[in-house]
């Protein structure tokens, strides 16, 4: 694979790329940006909730990473380090605005939706159910407190383990599980409320 400098990037660990970047190798840093940009953006977007803002914060995250690379401890994984910077930057951005961000559902940006949706589902009934649930979750997730949005994204979308999530959020490892449990419960509650508001059948609450 060629980078923007016309050089061949051999599969290199994130950590090695980070030390090369620190030595002034911009090609290595560009590779890091390419590797992490979508994941960092996903995390930032989930916390910040607004597309353009999220993109600005994401750009700031990479500039911060570049400036602070000398603080990165090479014996540890790079991913949790950058996600921690991204989480803190997003939460700061949210606080600076000092108001709740309301997701603008009129926004129509191209999303991963089209890319992922050619998925395994062939059963039209299941497909319909999943699409409905996708809409519910997408709307509900922004109603969660930001720390719940963060932990859900870190666990499910970014597939990090509990120790990594604990380091990123500065909570103890056992509380990661607690927070995920609560976040999922809260998410489900919001989904039920949304459905209730629209007078839909409460299939999720069938056994309560």
């Amino acid at each position: 694979m060629l980078n923007g400098f016309g050089e061949l990037i051999v599969l290199t660990s994130d950590e090695l790329l980070a030390s090369k970047s620190l030595n002034g190798d911009l090609a290595a840093f560009e590779e890091l940006v390419n590797r992490f940009k979508n994941r960092v953006f996903a995390l930032v977007y989930r916390i910040v909730g607004q597309h353009q803002e999220a993109e600005d914060v994401t750009q700031d995250v990479f500039l911060t990473v570049y400036e602070k690379l000398y603080q990165y401890d090479n014996s540890k994984n790079f991913a949790p380090w950058i996600f921690r910077i991204a989480t803190n930057a997003s939460i700061s951005a949210l606080r600076r605005k000092k108001k709740v961000v309301i997701l603008n559902f009129e926004e129509s940006y191209p999303s991963n939706y089209e890319l992922n949706n050619a998925s395994f589902l062939t059963d039209p009934q299941l497909m319909f159910e999943r699409k409905e649930l996708e809409k519910e979750i997408s709307a509900a997730i922004m109603k969660l407190p930001e720390n719940y949005r963060a932990v859900i994204t870190l666990r499910y979308h970014l597939d990090l383990d509990n120790q990594e999530i604990a380091d990123i959020l500065d909570i103890s490892r056992e509380n990661v599980e607690v927070r995920i449990h609560r976040a999922r419960k809260a998410l489900r509650k919001i989904i039920l409320q949304q459905k209730e508001e629209r007078g839909m059948k409460l299939e999720l609450s069938a056994n309560r």
Partner: peptide
């Protein structure tokens, strides 16, 4: 249903795409 939720949260298909030139913008700033 929970597994379906898990799958949806994993895919996070509602997250928009980053603009195409994002890496270029970052590198130019640097």
């Amino acid at each position: 249903i929970t597994r379906m939720e898990n799958q949806i949260l994993t895919d996070a298909a509602d997250i928009p795409l980053l603009s195409e030139d994002f890496s270029g913008q970052v590198m130019r700033s640097i």
